[in-house]
Amino acid sequence: MNQPQKSGNDPIVEFTDVGVTKLSPAGTSMVILDQISFTARQGEITGIIGASGSGKSTLIRLCNRLDDPSAGTIKLNGQNIATIDPLVLRRKVAMVLQKPFMFEGTLLENLQRPFLFRKLAPPSAESLEIARVLDLVQLPAEMLKRDARSLSGGEQQRVNLARALVNHPEVLLLDEPTSALDRPSTARLASTLNTICHSEHLAIMVVTHDLYLAEHIVNHLIYLEEGRIMEQGVGTQMLAIPQTTAFSNFLAKPEREQKSSS
C-alpha cells in the first residue's frame, strides 16, 4: 500500500520506481528492491523500517551512490543523482554508517578528515565550524584531543554524526544508528537528531529496526518487506493504526526478531 505523504516542506529526495537487482553467488537474479517510490522533505525525518533482508540498507546506500539502482530514478532537488559527480553528491548527502568507524587519531583529526579529502585547510579546534558541530551533537570541546578510538560507543556515534555534518549536507542518511546503543543513549540520539533536523533544516533518512525512533522522531515512515514498500505515511498514525496486515504482523513480532542490518 503506497500513500505518498502530504507535507508543506519542500521535497528534496525523490525516488521513482527504483529497483535493485543483483546476481546471487549461484548466478541467478535476485530482486533486492522493487518499485520504490517516495519523497523525503527538508526539515523532516523519514524512517525506513523493516525486517532483516527487506532491503533497508540497500535503499539508503542508493541515496549517496554507494550503490546504483538497476531501475528507476532518484532525484536530489529535482536533478537525477546519476548525473551528479558522486564526490559532490556525497558532500550534499552525508551518511553515517551502521558501525561508527573512527580514523586513527584524535576526535579533532576525525572531524578534520572530510576537509582533507577535499584538499581544503582543516578547521582548527577553536574554529566556529568545529564548535558548531560539537554543539549540534552535544560533545564537549575538551574531548577534541582525546584518541577517537578510546571513546565509548555512544560518543563514537556522536563523532560519526558530527563528522557527517561538517560538510553542511542537505540530506543526512543514518543506517541503523542505534544498533549498538542502549535505551538512554538511543533517547539522547533521537533528541539530537530531532534538534539537528530542525536547526539545520535538513532532510534526515534513517534506517532502523528500533521502534523507539519511529515512535518519537520520525515524520514519514516507510515499511519495507522483501524489497517492496508495503505501507508508508505519517509515522505516528501508521504505528497507531496499521493499514496493512504485513505491517500489523511486523509490529506484533517481539522487537528482538526485528533487529537486523539488511
Binding site: N64, L66, L87, R90, R91, A94, M95, V96, L97, K99, F101, F103, R113, P114, F117, R118, R163, A164, N167
Partner: peptide, 16 residues
C-alpha cells in the same frame, strides 16, 4: 571495507 566506505561517504575519492 568499513573504513573505506566511511571515507567514501565523507567525500573521499577511491584513492584517498
Amino acid at each position: 571495507r568499513e573504513e573505506i566506505e566511511c571515507a567514501l561517504s565523507l567525500g573521499a575519492t577511491s584513492r584517498q
